[in-house]
């Protein structure tokens, strides 16, 4: 099985999408022919597009931007459309893994529709995927193995997704939030994550909420 996995994060390093994809790679059987691509803020060459369109399965993974797809990944989807529309594309199955900074995985539902609309235009099959909430927490808790901490539901979903990918079967769309109460997640995001990072830049809480007029 030839599988192309595309990380659409625009972060230069340390993306939460990358952590999820690292887990997915480990869950996929070693007999698969897997190519991992990181898009970043650049575009793929025609050579890479020509390799991707020959895949049995394509996995798009990215963070939610503006309730949708990051602009550079959107550009990549538009450019890639012309490489599909061939006989081979009819057999390709596309899955998506979308994480977002809000707590609720359900907030990725519009981005899933956009991916489905791209599949319709490109002539490939949409196989479903995972919409994950509290994406920043994945990076913040990465010392805890994904299958043991608040994201063990994500790990189990990825395991099932890996099975469906290898069978090229529909997965449906599953929305996940962490096994962690939302009010505690919010406190953690405010106090543990934002404030210390701002303090390093000598900013106070008042500075963080300042208005520039």
């Amino acid at each position: 099985m030839k599988i192309s996995i595309i990380n659409g994060s625009q972060k230069p390093s340390g993306s939460n999408t990358g952590i999820i994809l690292s887990t997915l790679n480990n869950l996929l059987g070693k007999d698969n022919d897997i190519d991992n691509y990181t898009l970043g803020v650049k575009q793929f060459s025609a050579e890479i597009y020509n390799k991707i369109v020959l895949s049995d399965v394509i996995v798009f993974a990215f963070p939610l931007y503006t309730d949708s797809i990051p602009s550079n990944m959107l550009k990549m989807l538009i450019e890639s459309e012309s490489f599909f529309g061939r006989e081979k594309a009819k057999e390709t199955v596309v899955y998506a893994i979308i994480n977002n900074g809000y707590y609720e995985g359900k907030q990725t539902h519009i981005a899933f529709e956009i991916i489905q609309n791209w599949c319709d235009r490109s002539g490939v099959h949409f196989g479903g995927g995972l919409g994950q909430g509290a994406g920043e927490m994945i990076g913040a808790t990465q010392k805890t193995p994904l299958n043991k901490g608040p994201f063990n539901n994500l790990w189990r979903a990825l395991k099932l997704l890996a099975e469906k990918i290898e069978a090229k079967e529909p997965f449906g769309i599953k929305y996940l939030s962490p096994y962690f109460p939302r009010f505690l997640w919010k406190i953690m995001a405010h106090n543990t994550f934002r404030h210390p990072l701002a303090s390093k830049n000598k900013l106070t809480k008042k500075d963080i909420v300042s208005k520039i007029m």
Binding site: S68, N72, L74, I110, R121
Partner: peptide, 9 residues
């Protein structure tokens, strides 16, 4: 695909 153009996005 139901979204904006890359520039507007």
């Amino acid at each position: 695909y139901g979204s904006y153009s890359p520039f507007v996005h």
